[in-house]
């Protein structure tokens, strides 16, 4: 069963999975990172409290996070088509992945930034730092290890979503598992894809942990 054609299919699947996962993670951070920062900055004890903004974003983030991923993916097909010109394939799947993951990323970023000791921000204020400098040079810079740790969680979670995307027309390992395991009862192929997914998650988690501990100067 593992002929060269099958192996090529699996290699392609790995490529598509990585493409979707990393692409979606990138765009999720493009949206989620600023959202997380705004949530922290605008909160009641933030550096520029602005409750209306905080409350609106908070509700949006919660709403988006409570929609099941597959429902979201199907629901926004028209939007996906508008952006990518198609509703199937790996590129198209990045759109719902980003929409589902960005609010999640925003929460991860928010909780990383909230871990930061308020005293350090106060010290920066006492030196005459502007809010922009505080966000950039204190909050984000000091939270780097925690943010990297969050990114590891985000990327592995998005990988899981992308495999689910196999049900609704995405490519990648998820689609292979679905097509061969579910439709053709070739459980061995399904098992191989699952093992490959597990390995990818392990590698991502492992390198994420390495990066995090390398970046952290607090425990030496």
């Amino acid at each position: 069963m593992l002929d060269s054609q099958m192996i090529w299919l699996l290699v392609q699947g790995i490529g598509e999975t990585l493409y979707m996962t990393l692409g979606a993670t990138l765009f999720s951070y493009v949206i989620g990172l600023p959202l997380g920062v705004i949530l922290v900055v605008c909160a009641k004890d933030g550096i520029k409290p602005c409750l209306p903004v905080y409350r609106v974003l908070d509700v949006i983030v919660n709403l988006t996070r409570s929609i099941p991923f597959l429902v979201l993916a199907v629901w926004i097909i028209p939007f996906t088509r508008l952006i990518t010109g198609t509703s199937i394939g790996s590129t198209a799947m990045i759109v719902p992945l980003v929409l589902a993951a960005a609010p999640f990323v925003a929460r991860l970023v928010e909780s990383s930034l909230l871990e930061l000791d308020k005293g350090i921000i106060e010290a920066a204020q006492s030196m005459g730092a502007s809010n922009f400098q505080i966000i950039w040079k204190v909050m984000l810079s000091e939270s780097k290890p925690s943010l990297l740790n969050g990114a590891t969680i985000a990327v592995t979670t998005i990988l899981g979503y992308s495999a689910m995307g196999g049900f609704v027309g995405a490519g990648g390992l998820g689609a292979i598992a679905y097509n061969y395991g579910y439709y053709r009862y070739q459980t061995d192929i399904m098992l191989i894809t699952v093992i490959l997914l597990v390995i990818i998650v392990q590698v991502m988690q492992g390198s994420g942990n390495k990066l995090t501990s390398h970046a952290d100067k607090r425990k030496i």
Binding site: E122, A123, S141
Partner: peptide, 19 residues
Amino acid sequence: RKMRRSMGMIFQQFNLLMQ
């Protein structure tokens, strides 16, 4: 902010940038 540069401050918990 400019004025604060002529007023340094130190704290009980030091508040150094840990990274």
